[in-house]
Design a protein around this nucleic acid. Structure first.
Length: 410
RNA sequence: GGAGGAGUCGCAUAGUUGGUCCAUUGCGGGGGAUUGCUAAUCCCCUGAGCUGUCAAAAGCUCGCGCAGGUUCGAAUCCUGUCUCCUCCGCCA
């Protein structure tokens, strides 16, 4: 949520920020309602004051009159307030000033490229072909059981997956992150507060209607909201978590995209980072998260590039976002592997998460970033493949997997 | 799932025959006074919002898990709901 005082003073900034994100807003309507709201509030408060005086004087007659008048004004106030608040929640977070103006992903900026692309003296296979050859990925049976965009991982793929998770946890715990296994179902109101139900976001969620719960799309959802309605101790900031969860996405609107293999599934596992930092320290933290994500790619020795999202490619609650994209030989291009976003104080306002500094309580800044999802397996299979379909295990993972190479079964 | 009990200002607590509660006290936090130093003592402030202002002073409203209701008046009574605790049942 954007600070209403900020909107009052800078309506044009808010309008522009939303337009840059491709969202049309009627800020004047909100300001008019806000005005009306405050006028009514003053009126109601005046009446209550009189009511309180009458009550103190035991003036029953006067009290009755005031009560009737008050009820009428209060109901007006309530409806205006509700509409005002509803509209306020529909305002997206504003992009940071350094974010490039652009309509969609084609206008994202490539910041840097790291690592040499692998050279094959044979035609490289794609990850699914390799996965089937090695008997470690099965999407056919998953389709039978669960439908499209599901997969079974088997055999060495599991150990590879767990190795990635262990590497992530080990590295991040050393950095001071608090490990956490969060719930994968959250209340709808939580998802709304996070800013992921607006602008069609609801379409990408799996909902359990009977229980009023939503399956998380990432551990961010249940980790960020952990501290809802709390005042954090400033001494504990920055507070950093590394969490693991299965993630669920309906992938509405991505029909036909990445239908092959395990690149884009309805269910996948992910290790996620979340930081709560002091007001104004999110820029620094954002660079830190990005550097950690780079470190992971470098440990795996995978070639990557960093892409900085343009305004049009930022999600509703996001103020700035970087993607780390890894080289995928079979596609002959870089594909998103991890990403990191800052939401500034936007989510903190909606979730009411503060910290106290001297006499003031201020909203924290909240950031999130991916450590590893299941996607790195795609990248590893493809970048580390050999002519016979075997795949070498990246050096850094071998101590966890216990094997150096995955070979075809027969 | 069944039966009880509880939820009060950062934390802990007082207050439930409805009005003297602009919610008590302690701790923690901030500011100030006193004081050779340290310690100690004392005073003020320390939930949210609105009006007001350069800022303030000041005033008002709301706030006792949440949402409603009764009443001239609700922390206190009623209804619903959420969360936690205890016991029983079921269960990985």
């Amino acid at each position: 949520m954007i600070d209403i005082n900020f909107i009052r003073k800078n309506p044009e900034v808010v309008t522009k920020g939303a337009i840059d994100k491709g969202i049309a807003l009627d800020v004047n309507r909100i300001l008019t309602l806000d005005d009306e709201y405050r006028n009514l509030q003053a009126k109601v408060q005046g009446l209550r004051e009189q009511r309180n005086i009458a009550a103190k004087e035991r003036n029953v007659e006067k009290g009755r009159e005031l009560k009737a008048e008050l009820e009428a004004e209060e109901s007006k106030l309530k409806s205006v307030e509700e509409e005002r608040n509803k509209l306020l929640l529909e305002i997206p977070n504003l992009p940071k000033p350094d974010v490039k103006l652009g309509e969609n992903e084609s206008e994202n900026e490539i910041i840097t490229k790291v690592g040499d692309l692998p050279k094959f003296d044979f035609t490289p296979r794609d990850h699914l072909e390799i996965g089937e050859l090695l008997d470690i990925i099965d999407v056919k049976r998953a389709a039978k059981v669960s439908g499209t965009r599901f997969y079974y991982l088997k055999n060495e793929a599991i150990l590879l997956e767990f190795a990635l998770k262990q590497l992530a946890f080990e590295t991040l715990i050393k950095e001071g992150f608090i490990p956490v296994l969060p719930p994968v179902m959250v209340k709808e109101e939580i998802m709304r507060a996070l800013g992921y139900m607006e602008q069609g976001g609801e379409e990408d969620m799996y909902k359990l209607e009977k229980d009023g719960l939503v399956l998380v799309g990432t551990a961010e959802h249940s980790i960020v909201s952990m501290h809802k309605d709390e005042i954090l101790d400033v001494k504990d900031l920055p507070k950093r978590y590394v969490g693991f969860s299965t993630s669920f996405r309906r992938e509405a609107g991505s029909y036909g995209k990445d239908t092959r293999g395990i690149m884009r599934a309805h269910q996948f596992d992910k290790v996620e980072m979340v930081s709560f930092v002091k007001q104004g320290e999110d820029d620094k933290e954002h660079e830190y998260m990005l550097s950690l994500e780079q470190r992971f790619l470098e440990m795996l020795k995978l070639p990557y590039q960093i892409s900085k999202m343009c305004t049009g490619d930022l999600g509703f609650p996001v103020a700035r976002k970087y993607d780390i994209e890894v080289w995928i030989p079979s596609e002959d291009k870089y594909r998103e592997l991890t990403s990191t976003s800052t939401t500034g104080d936007f989510q903190a306002r909606r979730l009411n998460i503060k910290y106290r500094e001297e006499q003031d309580s201020k909203y924290v800044n909240i950031l999130n970033g991916t450590a590893f999802s299941t996607r790195p397996i795609v990248a590893i299979l493809e970048n580390y493949q050999e002519e016979d379909g075997s795949v070498l295990v990246p050096q850094v993972l071998r101590k966890y997997t216990g094997f150096d190479k995955i070979s075809p079964k027969k």
